[in-house]
Simulated scan of single mutants.
Amino acid sequence: MRKLTYYVASTIDGFIATEEGSVDFFPVGGDHGPAITAQYPETLPTKVREAIGVDQQNRYFDTVLMGRKTHDFGVRTGTSSPYAHLKQYVVSATLPESPDPAVELIAEDPLAKVRELKRDTGLGIWLCGGGALAQVLLPEIDQIFLKLYPIVLGRGRALFGDGPRLSKAAEFRVITSRVFEDGVAFVKYSRIP
């Protein structure tokens, strides 16, 4: 069965973006970027892959899920199909139709759709954001790959929205971790059944 992986960047106080949705506070450069990109080249937007000459096959993911606000970030930067090298889904109850022919809209019951996708054959499923969607999909998240930046933002969009309402804590264990010279920690967690 395919795995759903929430692969995201976060501050040490648990924010993935400012309240307005900006991610400009995450530093660009350093030694973490090339190392992580080499391992997960499919997590770069298609335009970035083309600009820097990345033409590697998808290694870990062949499908990407994103919430409307995460997708809107791509639209603001000039693309409605940010990951053309992946099967793309946008989860939104407010969009009247798919924002792009290459993007499938999930308008209702994203948990059921994720369960269906997990039964299909293929590589992993990447949840690239946002926090509110991660909160909804937490029961199906198998892994969390966290790029943890040594930044305290104070406020913003939280890693899991306004917080999951759980009857029982969702437990994960660290499967690997690496701290880069630039201070970014890349920690992989796997759900404890």
Rank of each mutant, 00 (worst) to 15 (best):
K3G: 09
L4D: 03
Y6M: 04
Y6K: 05
Y6L: 06
T11D: 10
F15M: 07
I16M: 10
I16G: 02
T18L: 12
E20G: 14
E20Y: 04
S22Y: 03
F25H: 15
F25D: 06
F26P: 01
F26N: 10
V28N: 14
G29R: 05
G30N: 09
D31R: 08
H32K: 04
G33A: 09
P34G: 13
P34R: 06
P34S: 08
A35P: 13
A35H: 08
A35I: 13
I36H: 01
T37V: 10
A38K: 13
P41C: 11
E42I: 01
T43K: 01
K47V: 10
V48Q: 08
R49V: 03
E50W: 11
I52D: 08
I52Q: 12
Q57C: 15
N58S: 09
Y60E: 03
D62Q: 08
T63D: 02
T63Q: 07
V64P: 03
L65W: 00
T70N: 10
D72A: 09
D72K: 01
F73T: 15
G74K: 00
G74T: 06
G74F: 02
R76M: 11
R76V: 12
T77E: 09
G78F: 15
T79E: 06
Y83R: 08
Y83E: 02
Y83Q: 03
H85R: 05
L86C: 09
K87D: 01
K87Y: 05
Q88C: 10
Y89A: 01
V90Y: 00
V91K: 00
T94C: 11
E97N: 12
S98G: 12
V103N: 02
L105G: 11
I106V: 06
I106W: 02
E108T: 12
E108Q: 11
D109T: 03
D109A: 03
P110Y: 05
P110A: 01
A112R: 07
K113C: 01
R115I: 05
D120H: 13
I125N: 00
W126V: 01
W126R: 05
L127R: 04
L127E: 02
L127W: 03
C128W: 00
G129K: 06
A132W: 00
A134W: 00
A134Y: 02
Q135E: 07
L138K: 09
L138S: 02
L138P: 09
D142E: 15
D142T: 06
Q143K: 07
F145Q: 06
L146N: 04
L146A: 05
L146W: 00
K147F: 09
L148P: 03
Y149P: 02
I151C: 10
I151Y: 05
V152E: 14
G156S: 12
A158W: 04
F160N: 08
F160C: 06
G161I: 02
R165Y: 12
L166N: 13
S167V: 12
S167Q: 13
S167H: 13
S167D: 12
K168S: 13
K168E: 15
K168F: 08
A169C: 11
A170Q: 14
E171W: 14
F172Q: 07
F172R: 15
V174D: 07
I175H: 15
T176S: 14
S177D: 09
S177Y: 08
S177Q: 13
R178W: 09
R178P: 07
R178L: 12
V179Q: 07
F180Y: 07
E181V: 14
F186N: 04
P193K: 15
